[in-house]
Design a binder for these strands. Sequence first.
DNA 1: TTATACTATTTAATCGATTAAGCAAAACGC
DNA 2: GCGTTTTGCTTAATCGATTAAATAGTATAA
Lengths: 341, 341
Amino acid sequence: MKKKVSIHDIAKQLNVSAATVSFVLNGKAAEKRISEEMEQKILKHVNLLGYRPNRIAKSLRTGKSKIIGMLVEGIADPFFSAIARIIEEQAYKLDYKIFYASTENDSRITRNIIGAFRDTQVDGYIIVPPPGIEDDIQALMDDNFPVVLFDRYFPGLATCNIVVDNFDGVYQAMRHFLQHNYKNIGLVTIPSSQTQMRDRLNGYHHAITESGRTPYVKTIAFDLKPDQEKISHEIKLFLQEHRQIDAILFATNYLAISGLEAIKQLGKSVPRDIAVIGFDDNTHFSLFSPSITAVAQPIREISEHIMQQLMACLTGHEKAPEKKTTVLQTKLIIRESSQKQ
Amino acid sequence: MKKKVSIHDIAKQLNVSAATVSFVLNGKAAEKRISEEMEQKILKHVNLLGYRPNRIAKSLRTGKSKIIGMLVEGIADPFFSAIARIIEEQAYKLDYKIFYASTENDSRITRNIIGAFRDTQVDGYIIVPPPGIEDDIQALMDDNFPVVLFDRYFPGLATCNIVVDNFDGVYQAMRHFLQHNYKNIGLVTIPSSQTQMRDRLNGYHHAITESGRTPYVKTIAFDLKPDQEKISHEIKLFLQEHRQIDAILFATNYLAISGLEAIKQLGKSVPRDIAVIGFDDNTHFSLFSPSITAVAQPIREISEHIMQQLMACLTGHEKAPEKKTTVLQTKLIIRESSQKQ
DNA sequence: TTATACTATTTAATCGATTAAGCAAAACGC
DNA sequence: GCGTTTTGCTTAATCGATTAAATAGTATAA
């Protein structure tokens, strides 16, 4: 194991001080009046030895880790992993690295992770917040850490937020159902009062009220998430109880999956017996038979806005960038599952 | 912004030395003969102030970062993200954190990432290696870094490897086709000579030869991966060229997706006109109509073996654990797409 | 009584960088 | 020719921990 070379090794071998080497390596040669000749000599030798600065030491001295902490509900969720992929790509370009962690939408787990990230001195946070975590987020901000929330947010907190127009996304899906003459439109959602779910629910009720229809809402406990079977079962019961339902909107991706399973098990045909739209698109929805209509979130746009905001805070010279909520538009991808043949 | 408290602050406030505090916090009170009384006093005060050690400083001193670098082909790929999720979970339990990065199976990108990870002083590496990266992996090992490869490996390198029995996985799929009396079985794969793909191809040829059938192999250039349309197109041409094909095995998940699209576009019916099996299962395969038969990899088992191996190396007291290749078995999940009704 | 051992803690070096402040030599001004 | 700048570097402190070695005080042994 070849021992690591430090800036002092370089300095000693060239009979200069470590400071000089440091200045050159940080592009401060001119500023610090290092001669052209010396600069070249150092650069050449650094290349020769393949020396690379120890980032830990650098971090300790500068107080910057060049690491961003990213907390999502679950890294295996296709929506979040797609965003993670793009964020990662951009971060590397900007010489940042990303710590991911999954919160399972649990505040205790989230609190732990935030603690661990703080210990590691991450420079900034990208968070999909679970409920009940306001104080911890506020604490981060009090300590001047850049924080960007996405997917949902806390109206009471002055954070940067990147979200989609959940209300309008659902509203458009509902309009589509109504235009295709569906009469009894149900919603399957989760019992969350967080912004994203609340807005989807509001969008539903708005469309229902506006059109004078009857609402049919089924709420599936969040802790069933790992148990697809149980969710299917609940949805089956719901559909059997309200046989008049001829169209249904699923408020999340995994509910749509289990919902389709339920419909299949009931022997009903999509969209003949019942039309379907899912919130969040999915690579596979186009391949289902019938293909599934979905409210798609603009993944790339979301990711880019997140990084833009975070970088603005991270490089912000004292004056913190305005805290604001960016609302992006969803897109209804119309496929077979929502239109009678 | 409340300024951070350091171990020296604690020490000063209690009129003891930082060393004493450090010993207590690292559970070395007994070993270092710190009095019970002093220990309690320190612990109490540490709790009171909510002091948490700076990990960067600790890392600099100890040379350990408690970070594991994980390089996969793409974090958005469901197979890799599922594994990442489990690894993450286990790592946090063991007080490690994970850096993920996507290699896109490109050696240049991979080399860059490895460089970046080294600069950050990660303690160990979990790698899904792209081709042509042997020397870089060897260099890591020469420098005594724990390295675990998975999904594929280099037979010439003495690394720890966790893989599945790709040969047998494909062979079983083929046996299944043959038992259901399919005559002309095609394989759609990618032009990779890496172990995982080579073994799948060998499994195919072995079954074909053994049964005296004719092989039909279509190789899809890897760089088409982002372009589902083009892949579908290629597969359509292949199927039109060999109209006798009545069963087809897709060597990767994304090929199966595009392949199904191709079959759909050709107006053929699965499994009546053509039967299908995919390598790698997928949460949604059971929901497709027909549902898709798949060779499933044991995700949890793979993840656990990876962590086990890595931890063995990481905590290995000098004597490096034996380098070995662990081969896990796949499971054929039989669904509708591979059996004539 | 004096040497020795043990106890409980401190001192100080160290990890590998950054950076404010310092300083000698050369150049410049008059 | 002497003071003042400028040039081109170096010195040394610092970030916040860890840890080998040192030390002061007390107990034990011969």
